Simulated assay, not measured.
Amino acid sequence: MSLFDQILGAAHNHPTVKNMAEKMGIDQETAERAIAALTEGHQADTDTVTTAAERSGIDAGVLTQVMEHVGGEGSLGSFMQMLDKDHDGNPLNDITDMAGKFFGKK
């Protein structure tokens, strides 16, 4: 399971995301994908919005609006912290562990 998919799962049908989508005039699925793409893009060494737009196909203007709505680029780190179960600063190992359990590897 990719980081994008993990974040997308956390955002799926979340009331806050639904509310944000309604306020912005976009559909909930786009809002969910935007949050996942921005959070993933935040981990890259490149520009967050540019990377998220390239990986998701969502317009950079929409991504910028979503990022501003959730509190700016700094707030994207909080999404990563939600996934960092062991609080070691690296959520990727936790996602790998979750995927391993899902596929019966642990």
Rank of each mutant, 00 (worst) to 15 (best):
D94W: 00
N13D: 15
E40H: 06
L63D: 03
T51P: 00
T51M: 02
L92R: 15
F4G: 06
T50A: 12
D27Y: 07
Q43H: 02
D5F: 04
D84Q: 09
N90W: 01
N93C: 08
K106I: 13
G9H: 14
M80Y: 08
D86K: 12
M20T: 09
R33S: 09
G89H: 09
T30M: 11
K85D: 13
S78A: 12
T46S: 09
A34D: 04
G41Q: 01
M1F: 04
I58S: 04
K106G: 12
G71S: 06
E73K: 14
F79W: 11
G100T: 12
T30H: 03
H12S: 13
S78I: 11
F79G: 02
F79R: 03
Q65Y: 00
E22C: 03
E54A: 11
A52N: 10
G25E: 08
E29V: 15
D45R: 11
I7A: 01
T51W: 01
Q81I: 13
F79M: 07
M82N: 15
G72H: 01
D47T: 10
M20Y: 02
I7G: 00
A44R: 13
L38S: 05
G71V: 06
N93W: 01
T46M: 04
M20N: 06
A52M: 05
E29S: 14
S78M: 14
M20H: 07
H42L: 01
G41E: 00
D94F: 00
I58Q: 06
E40C: 06
S2K: 07
R55K: 14
A31Q: 08
E68A: 07
S75F: 04
H14N: 15
Q81T: 15
K18Q: 14
I35T: 09
G71A: 03
K101I: 08
A52Q: 06
I7T: 08
Q28G: 05
E29R: 15
V66M: 10
E40W: 00
V17W: 00
Q65C: 00
P91W: 00
S2I: 04
K85W: 03
G61D: 14
K105G: 09
N19M: 08
I26V: 15
V17Y: 01
T64S: 12
V62D: 02
P15V: 06
E54N: 10
D88I: 05
T16V: 14
D94Q: 05
I35K: 00
L3T: 13
G100M: 12
G104H: 09
N93M: 07
D86V: 11
H69D: 05
E73R: 12
T64C: 01
G25Y: 04
M1L: 08
S56A: 07
A60R: 13
Q43L: 07
N90E: 10
V49N: 02
H14D: 15
M82L: 13
A11P: 12
A37K: 04
G9E: 14
F79L: 06
K101M: 10
N19K: 15
M24L: 15
M20P: 03
T48K: 03
